[in-house]
Simulated assay, not measured.
Amino acid sequence: MASEFRLGAGLRLAVTTFTTLPLPAGRIDRAVAGTAMAVAPLVGAGLGVLLGGVLLGLAQVAPPLVAAALTVTVGTLVTRGLHLDGLADTVDALGSYRRGPAALEIMKKPDVGPFGVAALVLVLLVQAAVLAELAARPGPAAFAAVVAATAAGRLGVTVACRRGVPAARPDGLGALVAGTVGPVAVLAGTVAVALVAVAAVPGRPWQGPLAVLAALTAVLLLLRHLVRRLGGVTGDVLGAVVEVTTTGVYVGVVLSG
């Protein structure tokens, strides 16, 4: 009974953390937070289903680039733009070349610096470009690509919250979720997202899973650097991880060779 309650509370926390869906607040502690981060890819997959449906629907009535831009807009609205904000703050901190508390102080500032702006423009541009390419050839593969990339973004958070990764601050979202996810959840999430990605590239069942693994590898390297620079993860870092992983998978599924 206790495990079922924790699963329900964790799923609810994951939904309210990664989307704007209004659900009543329940119990929140590190055990529930760990469950939420473990099931984050499931919430990402649900969000991917929504965005994939939006993209393919718009592709029937609008030019590919318009369909892509509107899909990116919907994705931003349903996530409150929190992940993009985290990306901008994290890149600003890295661009400052400061470490520890000094870098964390930059991340807390409400304004966005030039490094953050550049990161936002590049990420949104790449995502829109890839979605435009998918909208130009709508079908099950394009839909699977959107679902896999969106789920992979949240899988990146699962990886970032695995045991052994510290929090940069003693409070905040990072402190609540850091180190709460065990290896089984990380492995299960990776396998599940990779299986979804199999259908993302017609005729190349290996390319989607490879894109997922490559994006996660890049995130692991990024996390190693961020832990060294900041001392651990924060809520902003988790937001940055979402965008970096999602964008990496998007790029991986449209590459041709």
Rank of each mutant, 00 (worst) to 15 (best):
E4D: 15
R6H: 07
A9P: 00
R12N: 01
A14V: 11
V15A: 08
L23D: 03
L23N: 01
G26E: 12
R27M: 05
R30D: 05
R30K: 13
G34M: 12
T35K: 13
A36L: 03
A36I: 02
M37C: 09
V39K: 07
P41Y: 04
L42G: 04
G46T: 09
L47T: 14
L50G: 09
L51H: 06
V54N: 10
L55T: 02
G57R: 01
Q60I: 04
A62S: 09
P63K: 03
P64Q: 11
V66D: 02
T71R: 09
V72Y: 02
G75M: 15
V78H: 11
V78F: 03
T79V: 10
R80M: 13
R80S: 14
G81C: 03
G86I: 05
A88K: 03
D89Q: 02
T90S: 14
V91P: 10
V91N: 08
A93W: 07
G95F: 02
G95S: 07
S96D: 07
S96F: 00
R98T: 01
A102H: 06
A103H: 02
E105I: 12
M107S: 04
M107E: 07
K108N: 14
K108M: 14
V112C: 15
G113T: 08
P114C: 15
F115D: 10
A119R: 06
L120G: 07
L124Y: 05
L125N: 08
V126W: 11
A129H: 11
A132C: 06
A135G: 05
A136W: 14
R137F: 03
R137W: 12
P140T: 14
V146L: 05
A149L: 08
A152K: 13
R154Q: 11
R154F: 13
L155Y: 15
L155A: 10
V157G: 09
V159A: 08
A160F: 12
C161Q: 04
R163F: 01
R163G: 06
V165T: 11
A167D: 04
A178D: 08
G179M: 01
V181H: 01
V181A: 05
V181G: 02
V184M: 10
A185P: 01
A185V: 10
A185K: 00
A188K: 06
G189E: 04
V191F: 00
A192C: 06
V193Q: 00
V196A: 05
A197K: 08
V198N: 04
A199D: 11
A200W: 00
G203M: 10
P205Y: 07
Q207L: 12
G208L: 12
P209Y: 00
P209K: 07
L210W: 03
A211M: 00
L213S: 02
L220H: 13
L220Y: 12
R224E: 15
R224W: 12
R229C: 10
D236N: 01
V242F: 13
T245K: 13
T246K: 09
G248N: 09
V253S: 08
V254N: 08
